[in-house]
């Protein structure tokens, strides 16, 4: 943490994406980004890039580190999933390549942002088995299977970040950054659902044709009562459930993600 101009932790970042360590080591990129998105982007951008630019920051509370490493596990999973898929020559139809290239770029950036924020406390990338022990054996050869798992990962990611938000209140910068990732995951989720030809929002606890193993992703989504107020009296039960994405607990998320750990 002494030199603001040297390349940062190149080993860590290069493991994720050969280009990314270089990209994030360049202060001008970070500051151009901050300028482009206005002053409000500066704090989270600098937070996410802090290790990359060797900014000295106050150590994060352990509770915040735990949440960020939990998020990092999910981002590692998503990042490897999309990079593997995009490398298959005949998996993703041409009309949907822009969709999945954009999603993949964001997941790679999320990994880098979390690794940068956690610095030496970042966990290593786990080994993944996206077939879940053979259950989804054609995940990288059948687009329908690939898109179905993509939806499950994105909807899970939305619910996972949401569930951890209260645990980040100790550190407002981390909370804001997590919220900024959370809404991007929700954009991804909606788009993947549109690609699959289903509603972009979660209605009731419907798993929209996903395999039964994915039902845990939608557990409790049919909730219509918020702050003790039943929204079904305003708009009916279906819209009342769609209008809110419900959180998942850390354990619920780990149970889902655990299917894909090698």
């Amino acid at each position: 943490m002494t030199d603001a101009t040297q390349s940062p932790a190149p080993g860590i970042l290069d493991d994720i994406d050969p280009d990314l360590g270089e990209r994030l080591s360049r202060r001008e990129v970070l500051f151009a980004s901050a300028k482009r998105f206005g002053p409000a982007a500066t704090i989270p951008v600098l937070l996410a890039g802090c290790a990359a630019v060797k900014t000295v920051v106050t150590p994060l509370p352990q509770q915040v580190k735990d949440v960020l490493n939990f998020a990092l596990t999910l981002e590692y999973l998503e990042d490897e999933y999309y990079r593997t898929a995009l490398a298959q020559p005949n998996l993703i139809p041409a009309q949907w390549r822009p969709t999945f290239e954009q999603i993949s770029a964001h997941e790679t950036a999320h990994v880098a942002a979390l690794v940068a924020a956690l610095d030496v406390d970042a966990i290593a990338k786990p080994q993944f088995d996206f077939t879940a022990g053979g259950r989804f054996g054609d995940v990288f050869s059948n687009f329908n299977t690939f898109a179905a798992l993509s939806q499950a990962f994105e909807d899970t990611g939305v619910r996972a970040y949401k569930g951890q938000a209260p645990n980040l209140m100790l550190d407002p910068n981390s909370l804001t950054t997590a919220l900024q990732i959370h809404s991007v995951e929700a954009r991804h989720a909606a788009q993947v659902r549109l690609v699959r030809g289903v509603l972009p929002w979660i209605s009731g606890s419907s798993r929209t044709g996903l395999p039964a193993a994915a039902q845990a992703v939608y557990a409790g989504e049919g909730q219509t009562v918020q702050l003790g107020i039943d929204n079904a009296r305003f708009v009916g039960a279906a819209d009342a459930s769609e209008a809110y994405d419900e959180p998942l607990s850390k354990q619920q998320v780990l149970d889902i993600a655990g299917l894909f750990l090698a």
Partner: peptide, 22 residues
């Protein structure tokens, strides 16, 4: 349709972060 606009570079920055405004 079919574009990357659903999470376009006009709202999601290089670090994969959506906008946050006061």
């Amino acid at each position: 349709p079919g574009s990357a606009d659903f999470a376009g570079d006009d709202v999601v920055n290089l670090l994969g972060l959506d906008q946050a405004l006061p």
